[in-house]
Design a protein around this nucleic acid. Structure first.
Lengths: 371, 371
DNA sequence: CTGTTAGCGCCTTCAA
DNA sequence: TTGAAGGCGCTAACAG
């Protein structure tokens, strides 16, 4: 491995000069610079990143910590909610281009060993973007004293932490409102996600509140899932078994993947969707618009989540004294046909159209300081 | 920031002893160990990763370099082939759990600056898993002298490089054979992927060869796409415009996402799939089985690709003198209904079933040394 | 079993 | 404009 010393010797200069040339810090004579540059090219010299990190006290690395559910079947697409974190990840990586930082990954489930893992993980990076639901807030708070942190969450109470949040509640409210107002659904059923997921519980609460606020509408049943497609299918079976011909008007699933399993299972049992029962989801994953029927759902701004999280983190790294801030990104009701709407027929033609999508309603983003 | 020196002083030992305790290298008295451990816990000491890297000459980092197409619309799901690399990535990350290594990411398109980027990227890691099609083979070869490399590819001629490859050719051959033998397709149309993608060109060649080897069957047309869903839709329009009622018996798409766009467009034009024309894809992405009709395609072993790539790389890091090796992973024909089969009706019921999938054929993996 | 010490490769202040 | 030299925090011989 060639070092600055090798280069310095070959170019008859000191290592300080090599370093200066390397970082275009001026203060180097033109021909000296040329000479050094040539030697660097000839020797194929690449500075040792670890030595640089040690000396400059920065690693040029950003850590992204995502949740991994169902540890047994790590990424069986039918068992886990795979696509959601991936978009965040891609957006985060993209936001880092040309900043000199690289993205370091870790997917963790929330077990006992997690805090320790994240601690040592945090030693490798200059900052951390971490999903809610992996570490309790107290642990996050402790961690944030050691390294800049931005939390990706569905809640808005930062509690002293920097948070980029998503408007889960407004989204589910719009969804329920649509079912009740437009489709006159009265008897609603909910398929919940895993209780240890903040998103899941928040959506459940939002659903309850939204239904409670509407006269005439009521919750006729609840199923328990874990965000996986298969658990949605199981929930459908439970629903069919218990309903005895008295199916609800609509089933609201805590995420899209459960809706996929649920719809397949209902259809297999001869229950028409949305003819007999409306089904809606939450997330707006890529496959959702390809379903038959295309899924009405709430779009989460996943790319923005990743991009904003990273952007905020870079700000904090540059200026550690920035006061914590909560940023709330809007969700968007995406109306397709699984709710009973018939927008597909009215969809415009042409190469640019998005099959199954035609209507959408959004609410504005809210940015605020935490209490 | 607390250092080993702080810990050593507080525990009245030398830094060497702290280091020994840290790495459970025995040779430390029980009560000394306890004392040091307590101080470490009390002070919340975490060793500086950069200093460790510098001293041990290893970064504990593995780099994964993926291709990014359509730089303008970085991750518009309709524009790019998003899902494929993500599964590889997840599998790679998973294979790294509990090895002490973390996964460092970079998505790059193949432009001029790429080699330089990868060079500096490679300075941060102990080894690189890199997709074919980003760097020319000569550049890869040069890089491999500097850092252990494993290439993920569709070809089997390693040329001195370590390669984990996928049986593209056998897959497309099986696909074409199925169309011809089972569905008596004679007039075949192909939608090609971007010419700069090795996978794309290889599948095209495989398609040509497969058709040529069958009496009676012939290629009646070719469309050009870029792997994106939208380009598949455009290809469908071109096909419809030029076919003049003389549609082919089957359209083979170089990947699933183009098939999605193609099918939607055909259906919008009133052309029944597979009634009027069979359509098949390649990849077996998650959404493909959710389509209407469920897509017949060739499954790429994406998780295995990521897992084997990382596994091989770790071997090379542990033992740099290992001779280069080419490992070929099998693809698998996944028959659903878009080809004209009617397997969906025969699918078994129950929570564990995979909708739309019922039949599959595979060919054995081949492992060999390069020439 | 434990301590001393010389690096690991680069950056950067201080002089010249 | 350039060089000398100390230090970043940790590890690993080598002694003892």
């Amino acid at each position: 491995m060639t070092t600055v010393y090798d280069v310095a010797r070959a170019a008859s200069v000191s290592t300080a000069t090599v370093s200066r040339v390397l970082h275009q810090q001026g203060r180097v004579g033109p021909e000296t610079r040329e000479r050094v540059l040539k030697v660097i090219a000839d020797m194929g010299f690449i500075p040792n990143a670890a030595a640089q990190s040690l000396s400059r006290r920065r690693r040029d690395l950003i850590g992204l910590v995502g949740v991994e559910r169902n540890v047994d079947t790590p990424f069986d697409i039918e068992e886990t909610s795979l696509l959601y974190p991936d978009l965040i990840l891609r957006a985060a990586e993209h936001a880092l281009r040309d900043t000199g930082y690289s993205l370091l990954l870790a997917f963790l489930s929330s077990d006992e060993a997690t805090f320790g893992r994240i601690r040592s993980f945090s030693a490798k990076v200059d900052g951390l973007v971490i999903s809610e639901g992996i570490l309790p807030e107290a642990a996050l708070e402790r961690l944030s004293h050691r390294v800049p942190i931005v939390v990706l969450a569905g809640r808005h109470d930062g509690g002293g932490l920097d948070v980029v949040a998503v408007e889960n509640l407004a989204g589910i409210r719009a969804l329920v409102g649509h079912l009740i107002d437009v489709h006159s659904c009265r008897r609603l059923h909910f398929i919940a996600g895993p209780p240890d997921s903040p998103d899941a519980t928040q959506r459940f609460e939002g659903f309850r509140a939204a239904v409670a606020s509407r006269r005439g509408a009521r919750i006729v049943g609840t199923g328990q899932g874990d965000f996986s497609e298969r658990s949605g299918a199981r929930a459908a079976q439970a629903l069919l078994a218990s309903a005895e011909g008295q199916l609800p008007d609509a089933v609201v699933c805590a995420n899209d993947q459960m809706a996929v399993g649920l719809i397949h299972e209902l259809q297999a049992a001869g229950v028409s969707v949305p003819g007999r029962v409306a089904v809606v989801g939450f997330d707006d994953l890529y496959p959702s618009r390809l379903l038959d029927p295309p899924l009405t759902t709430v779009r989460q701004p996943m790319r923005e989540l990743g991009a904003r999280g990273v952007a905020r983190l870079l700000e904090k790294i540059a200026n550690p004294d920035l006061p914590p801030q909560v940023e709330v990104l809007p969700t968007e009701l995406v109306i397709r046909t699984s709710c009973g709407c018939q927008v597909a027929a009215a969809a415009s033609k042409g190469p640019g159209r998005r099959p199954g999508r035609s209507t959408k309603a959004s609410h504005p983003a809210i940015t605020s300081e935490p209490a």
